[in-house]
Design a protein around this nucleic acid. Structure first.
Lengths: 351, 351
DNA sequence: TTGAAAGCGCTAACAC
DNA sequence: GTGTTAGCGCTTTCAA
């Protein structure tokens, strides 16, 4: 690991503060860490010296001594460079950040992949994240947007790094805890809403099959149909992804296959917007001819033309629970292994 | 700083690898850091032991010894919890992340503010970021979205933390380097485009006055008008912000003041979309009655109804230059102090 | 080429 | 209450 040369101008150390305050290092340490076993007098002297010298504890040294870093990592494991195009990530990052701010911990956000060009199989990036975490730079990690059979949670667990997953893993044998939203229930709600509105030929724009959330939403769609007494209909399901392009593509597929289509449940709001565009391109009106329901309750759903009915995920809650679970693990307290949070339908137009 | 109790299961140390390989710690260290002064034989033995034991260097220890962390921070200094609603941030985070991936460094993303409720004056959060950075957890920092007279760059500089700013600071005396896009030129281009298209009453939806980018864009608007021989017209400028709501609000203000308005240059794409909604609400057609130009070339501009002409910022370049400048500083190499990158107009409809 | 030894700055027993 | 004393795991002279 080649390191650039220039060192930092030396910052004041505990030692120097001790000398300035006329006490020992231990006393300074006690004051700085907030121990009560210090005389008021000593404390005052130390505090004065700290302020005067502009002392800030060196984290590396503290971390080396305590074997803790006071830091947790939020890892967004998104190999396509689309991380923040997804409104969902934006929300969860904010929610987690906000929850962490209420603790003594510091949050670092690790983006898993940057340029797939450079690193087609993701292995180098995988190693980076893994090395960073196993190298002891964080006390624990929140893992988001796991795809397929990503070995990261397994490996971190093997290394003893506490981990909580945002979203249920594909392999439900994994010995890690997770928090998820009720994707299945949400999609069921959305589909039922369309069916109850009198739509006869409701299809699904499915997300990437290697992601659990996408699969759960598709399952919800199927259940709602079944519950309404409708037969299985694979031709009403088109695979896309969570992006606008993916949604548009799936929409075109569906339109070609099912001329009678009068409603679709999309994998995400972005996909729903893509569907809107695909429909406009062939002159189908929304919602008169075809109703479209999104998933995420993001800004794009609210500002779409027409505004989209969509499924709201309790993102703030999710962020809170993720942090809560990880903190409990770090503190050695018991906590639920799995948490599923309810979703709800946000109705924006009457179809 | 109260730390939770549970320690990590102990990971293998250099010491243990040395014993397993039958060499000294120094030799292991040399192999691990890639020093050439090691016999092939010793190297092989060490590599084997490293692999077998699953050894990963402890960063805190290494950092303590080298006084470097191998990490740089990207600080998004956004006090409103709206960080990732802004497509610009999403883009820049991605671009920086991608540029850092090409180096040996690791990127950590620090979100400056989470819950303004908790911390009305931002001081606690400010201290966090500052403590983290001055505590030696990163070798340098990229600072984004500075507002007003944020003392952070000054303070970090005083502490000897290398800093590069994304966006020109208000105080141009600040002894730090920065990378910015040509906001002024972009806004000028956009305004001129409208004027050249025959629009007579072109207004501006300005951004927050405490942000340089917003001010520069407003200046660009004024210059374009002046260049077209038009007089100053304060009533054609309404202050909003970069959000959709801000844009809608400013649009309504302008409409109330200037019934003849036939074009607006918005502070951002989001603001432009807000303007679209405000216009639709009063039955004005876009672009027939009023033309709207955005700023950012984000997804929302492309998918708006109608698709919006907008100003493209070279975000990938900006990310690359930011990282480049910081790396140069870290390596003690010389580099330009300030960089301004060109913007361009993306024309989406003929007005 | 290799090893021994001295820290890097801090915390945490343990005595006083 | 306060100071003394060991380390935490690694890098890096300095000798050999």
């Amino acid at each position: 690991m080649s390191q650039p040369p220039t060192p930092r101008p030396t910052a004041p150390t505990l030692q120097e503060v001790a000398r300035a305050a006329g006490v020992s290092r231990s006393t300074v340490s006690r004051v700085v860490t907030g121990s009560p076993r210090v005389s008021a007098e000593a404390r005052r002297a130390v505090e004065e010296a700290v302020a005067r010298l502009g002392y800030v504890p060196n984290r590396a040294a503290r971390s080396l001594a305590t074997r803790r870093t006071g830091t947790i990592a939020l890892v967004v494991r998104e190999p396509e460079s689309r991380v923040f195009d997804e409104p969902f990530f934006a929300g969860i990052v904010r929610a987690v950040s906000s929850a962490v701010a209420r603790t003594e911990l510091q949050l670092v956000l690790l983006l898993a992949a940057a340029d797939p060009q450079l690193d087609p199989d993701g292995s180098r990036e995988r190693d980076r994240i893994e090395r960073y975490l196993t190298g002891g730079h964080a006390d624990g990690a929140l893992l988001l947007s796991l795809h397929g059979d990503d070995p990261l949670p397994q490996r971190l667990h093997a290394h003893g790094v506490p981990v909580v997953l945002g979203g249920r893993p594909i392999d439900d044998q994994l010995p890690v805890s997770w928090v998820d939203v009720d994707n299945l229930g949400g999609a069921e709600l959305a589909t039922t809403h369309l069916l109850a509105g009198g739509r006869r030929h409701v299809g699904a724009l499915a997300g990437p099959p290697d992601m659990v959330a996408a699969r759960d939403r598709l399952t919800g769609f199927r259940r709602a149909r079944a519950a309404a007494g409708l037969p299985e209909a694979p031709t009403l399901e088109a695979v896309g992804d969570f992006t606008r392009e993916g949604g548009a593509r799936a929409m075109r597929t569906l339109l070609a296959r099912e001329p009678d289509l009068d409603g679709v449940v999309a994998a995400s709001d972005l996909a729903a917007v893509g569907a809107l565009q695909a429909l406009a391109a062939v002159g189908r009106r929304v919602p008169e001819d075809v109703a479209v329901v999104g998933f995420d309750d993001s800004l794009v759903a609210a500002s779409a033309q027409p505004p989209l009915t969509t499924v709201r995920q309790p993102i703030d809650q999710m962020g809170g629970r993720l942090v809560e679970l990880l903190c409990a693990r770090l503190a050695g307290e018991s906590a639920p292994r799995h948490v599923v949070l309810p979703t709800e339908l946000v109705v924006r137009h009457s179809t």
